[in-house]
Design a protein around this nucleic acid. Structure first.
Lengths: 344, 344
DNA sequence: ACACCTTGCTAATACGATTTAGCCGAACGG
DNA sequence: CCGTTCGGCTAAATCGTATTAGCAAGGTGT
């Protein structure tokens, strides 16, 4: 890319020393003795010439490119968005690293070839990310490499995982409801089964439900019912409408995803029920719409940024990686959709 | 990263030829004569050993890293999202290139240091992107480099720009309204002025308005009024409420951004007006919520993916880059928010 | 006076590729 | 029979940096 860069040889020449001396002076290493005078002259020359080391050339010897690869199935979809990348990027920047971003779109062959492309460029490590929490089997090219799994689990694959703490989030949802005085007429919308149309239910759904039911039980309360539905707006709308049509009068809805809440709002509105006056609603994810809805939705936020940040931090930590599962808290976003039950 | 990679020397040894021969055989160059037999043996050896060239080592000589840098102010915000990156990434992948993604968060110093980090890694070119269409002055480190400006314009900076065709989108909005029979009581919500709170209005707003008014005029129609407001949901809600409270009865609303439409929907709903029965609504951007709203919003889509894709295509085209402005069409997403005017 | 350290530096090599220059033998033309 | 060409290969240099090995000068201890 255009005019020749200043090399270390240029700096050495200008400072009147050998490249070896220049190298040691610039890297600031003390195990080789360089006089203060020489060191000063080298640094001065480097400054004047605007010298910047060529990282790729350096990596030939040092084996470190200060570069990390990021492989994901899909980064563009709503639930698992750019915040993950941003978190990883900023953690990388704090340590002068740069991030290659790739996306395989769920195609195994593409995934392999992207991993190769990364390894060909000598990345120091790879973040293998999924857009919703699930079990994965990373491509064989990654075996034995420095890898962190982001938002996914791979039993038998020797690498740490970073995932949201869905279980604790379920517990917090229950606590929020109990704290508001809600203990009866609580329905869960979204269910805990593996729903083919929305595979994030497999892990997230089960954990959230487990946490939720546990705390309700401890608090002497229980779910009045569980409605299975796909984790999308349309199905949320349909299932809550059906629930109301069947004559049920819930006091609180725990929607397993914000998209479901959005559908629930519509169904409740059409039935003339107000949120949170007649029905409290709490859900999970904190997508963008959650804060824009009227009333604003109380929800447990998927900590996208923190997930990305922690994954990168782990990678940049020196020493070997331990195959541990790191659970990142899902903070409660307290907004306007929860209230005390009306005495009616 | 772990076990030693197979090098070209290994391949040459196994094939019983010199590294030189191996290099020529593998690169498939014909200007050096290699017998078919030798070539075959080299390729076979490479296959058996699973040889992959070390791109960073190669780049030392060739000066090409097959690597592009992406610098943006912010990629995570809603309006200008991951689709841009995806477009750029896929275009890169088609040509075996990889993308460094960076984000400066609007900080000039951070921007400079990120550009340095990219150049230190010998990127072949840089995409300089803005999250909304505006005038920029790229950091001086990029002068004289191979650069494409994405979603921004920099007069005096010798590089091509890729931007959405806002003007033509304005014209298409007017055409859609006229085609539905709407020619009276048309209000523009959002205005064409530079609104400090929402700087995307500076270019996008003006162009959209210019196109809109032009076609209306050609069609013998005109705007009944223009309401200035910030490009967000809250202000859209307020201004449309105020408009209705002042006794106006618009037949069609052209909202300059989807977020404004969302607020307009709320205001119209509260006033007992239905979309599109009483009032047609069309807007710009096609954010995620546009298709989820009831009725689904007709809008002109910001072609994020295409912008990213074209920018990368330009970069990977051989030959020098011409400082031309490329305008990418904003396709009309025809949904349910436009209808013929009621005779009332 | 001699061996021995210490200080402060440089020469040379390595990293993994590409590329230039050149070598050897066979064929070919006159 | 000699000079030239051509096919098929290799040696060596190069890219920009890091690192190992070693060298010369001066001081120190005995």
């Amino acid at each position: 890319m255009s005019e020749r860069r200043v090399t270390m040889a240029d700096v050495a020449r200008k400072a009147g020393v050998s490249p070896t001396t220049a190298s040691f002076a610039l890297s600031g290493r003390t195990d080789m003795r360089i006089s203060d005078a020489s060191r000063e002259r080298v640094l001065e020359a480097a400054r004047e010439l605007g010298y910047r080391p060529n990282v790729t050339a350096r990596s030939l010897r040092t084996k470190s490119t200060q570069t990390i690869g990021f492989v994901s199935d899909r980064i563009t979809t709503t639930p698992f968005a750019g915040d993950v990348i941003r978190g990883a990027m900023e953690a990388a920047r704090e340590r002068d690293h740069l991030l290659f971003i790739t996306e395989a779109g769920g195609d195994r062959a593409a995934e392999s070839s992207l991993v190769h492309a990364l390894l060909d460029r000598q990345v120091d490590a790879v973040i293998y990310a999924s857009m919703f929490t699930r079990y994965v089997t990373p491509p064989k090219e990654l075996f034995g490499r420095r890898v962190v799994l982001l938002n996914c689990l791979a039993p038998g694959f020797d690498a740490p995982s970073v995932v949201p703490d869905e279980f604790e989030a379920g517990r917090d949802a229950a606590r929020a409801l109990l704290a508001a005085g809600q203990s009866e007429g609580i329905w869960a919308i979204g269910g805990h089964q593996a729903v083919p149309a929305t595979p994030e239910g497999i892990i997230a759904g089960n954990e959230r439900m487990r946490g939720l039911e546990g705390v309700l039980r401890e608090g002497g309360a229980r779910l009045e019912g569980v409605v299975e539905c796909d984790w999308d707006t349309l199905d949320g709308y349909r299932e809550v409408s059906a629930l109301l049509a069947a004559g049920h009068r819930p006091r609180a809805l725990v929607c397993l995803a914000d998209r479901v809440s959005f559908g629930a709002y519509q169904a409740l509105g059409e039935a003339g029920l107000s949120v949170p006056g007649d029905v409290s609603v709490i859900s999970f994810d904190d997508q963008d719409i959650a804060s824009v809805l009227r009333p604003a939705l109380t929800t447990l936020r998927l900590p996208h940024y923190q997930l990305g940040h922690l994954a990168m931090e782990l990678i940049l930590r020196t020493g070997p990686l331990e195959a541990v599962v790191h659970r990142v808290p899902m903070p409660l976003q307290s907004r306007a959709s929860i209230a005390a039950p009306t005495s009616g």
